[in-house]
Design a protein around this nucleic acid. Structure first.
Lengths: 354, 354
DNA sequence: TTGAAAGCGCTAACAC
DNA sequence: GTGTTAGCGCTTTCAA
């Protein structure tokens, strides 16, 4: 360990103190500290030394007060989704966010929404200038968050296409989402390429756009798929099993299934085996998400659609930074020229189930 | 939804603006906003209305600049422990922290340490006054974090007893830990009360104080336990299985086992059953942690030692708040009178394995 | 009880 | 190139 400046008990040194010690003006110190060009080398070094000796750290509040920037971004987690904490998806996404934020010299501030009453606190926090912008995750249609974000006029990017996106121009918040529809199409086409002709779909909850988009993708390819081929699930393992049983009851001749996520696919797989149906020989099965902890653990391992979750996290940050920079250049927020949302590609991962 | 003030595009309203609108001075508005006593009711109402109408939110940076308080606390997560994200423990602890922080009107700021280089960034953040204090988790002996914290002189509380705690007075940082030693004693005494006399211990990693304390507790009760009764594990399921096999090889007559955590206990259980030994009839088994996802899922369910993880999180915050308040009252930091650490009680949870 | 005014520590024009 | 100076928006004496 290098010899570090011992903390001088008492007041922290200010710019002023450094300036005095280095025998220069505050402005010069400020320039050096912020890496501005145009300070002569010897002075730079004198200042550097003074900074070092005093253990000077710029005061954040003072800096923010004038720059109107504070190098922090909020990630908002809503309570209903608290579980996502132990969700590998969330972990990956936040990891991506964290890394990209670090690359932009910004700090991640995690905001917990524990209940409806919290929106006040969150609003005050967001509006109070603690953070430059906010990152939020796809919320339910009646969530208050979008309203809060709009009211406090803070730049924000959503993860996952919000249900209301595109509905009204006013709420046009940029978002990052996987190409759920395209991925679903690819999954179904793969099933078709295997010679399957009676392909069912186990759909996810109707109020989540990801599920809706996957259903749409399925329909895109199977234009003539009757409702009998579609069963409703809710993204849980159990619901996948139930839906599979239902599908089998309606169409005993099924030879392919596309489940809207891996968890439901694994439930479906269980039922298929219980009925003595072989996968993929009798029924070929494709999932979605590529949650490896599931997809690689099933027997047979799941063919599924992968999305780059960490990459989506990073993208959210990049998008936000773009908004921030525009705002800095004097653009009015919500001037209609908001940077567009981005849809990231998906990829079919072939394993043994289809 | 109540009629909310529409965001006035452009600059956010300042105290000044509110004052103008209410026809009073800035000072008065400040008093009302901060709930200071001694402002006549009619004025209070006028101000309140103006605040409402303008959608005024106090500027954080400006306020912090003068009060030196910013209502935010950092929770520091070190990369080696990134996994804790998906660890139920961590979730519970952070949940406790989050709730208590909210109760104290403070905001949780999650700081990620992704690598050694990050300590600089963290140090700057901590020292820059972004947060009032820091909460960190038990770190390895050679971790840089304690040093950083000390250098930037920021009040901090640790979760879990750090290895160096108590070693040198200088590093006397308060911490919150479960009564690992007491819990271990209780576990072993329970085994004794069941009439078991040859009780083995599967220990956790030697460099984690929780594991060491549990081993000490085991020894407290079994003063004469020879080394043959103790096998080394590393808190993983696999290591528990290995240790169990080892123990059995050394002492085939074993009739009781205390494992330092539930994961290792479940590994031990697996081996026991493979050998055709019945639990608890032949060998009684006790774990530690009460990770219900494990302890309730094993067959038989695990008797184990529970700790109040969420409560520990809350306690960390309370402790920190006490330090903060002392600091506010002009006490020198590190004046030797730091609020003591706290050890929370554990509780034996009886299930079927012992 | 209320208002005027002095900063908190920093950046960014603007002078020199 | 470097220094001087005017704020950023707020809290907090101190007067009135």
């Amino acid at each position: 360990m290098p010899a570090l400046p011992e903390p001088t008990p008492g007041a922290r040194p200010t710019l002023e103190a450094v300036a005095a010690r280095a025998g220069v003006s505050r402005a010069t110190v400020s320039r050096v500290v912020n890496g501005a060009a145009g300070v002569r080398t010897p002075l730079v070094e004198k200042v550097r030394r003074a900074v070092e000796e005093l253990g000077y750290i710029p005061n954040h509040a003072a800096r923010t007060l004038v720059t109107r920037r504070n190098g922090a971004v909020a990630v908002i987690i809503a309570e209903p989704e608290f579980r996502i904490f132990s969700d590998p998806f969330f972990e990956q996404q936040v990891r991506g966010i964290s890394r990209e934020l670090t690359a932009h010299d910004s700090q991640l501030v995690l905001l917990w929404v524990e209940g409806p009453g919290d929106y006040d606190r969150i609003g005050r926090y967001l509006g109070g200038g603690h953070v430059d912008g906010a990152l939020a995750f796809s919320v339910h249609d009646d969530d208050e968050l979008p309203g809060v974000i709009r009211r406090v006029q803070i730049p924000a990017v959503f993860g996952g296409r919000p249900g209301w996106a595109g509905a009204t121009g006013e709420l046009a918040v940029p978002y990052v989402d996987a190409d759920n529809r395209g991925g679903a199409r690819e999954a179904v086409r793969h099933l078709l390429s295997l010679g399957r002709r009676r392909i069912g779909h186990i759909a996810g909850p109707r109020d989540q756009t990801s599920a809706v988009d996957r259903l749409d993708g399925y329909r895109d390819v199977l234009l003539d798929a009757g409702p009998g081929l579609i069963a409703q699930g809710d993204f849980t393992e159990e619901s996948g099993a139930r839906a599979m049983a239902e599908l089998l009851a309606r169409r005993p001749d099924l030879d392919g299934v596309f489940a809207a996520n891996d968890l439901m696919a694994s439930g479906a797989l269980r039922v298929l085996r219980e009925r003595g149906l072989r996968v993929p020989e009798d029924v070929a099965l494709v999932g979605f998400d590529d949650m490896t902890s599931i997809a690689e653990a099933t027997d047979p391992p799941l063919t599924t659609v992968r999305q780059d979750v960490e990459g989506m996290g990073r993208l959210m940050v990049r998008l936000l930074m773009r908004v921030l920079n525009r705002a800095e250049n004097g653009d009015e927020p919500g001037a209609g020229s908001a940077p567009g949302s981005v849809i990231t590609p998906t990829e079919l991962v072939r394993r043994a189930s289809a």
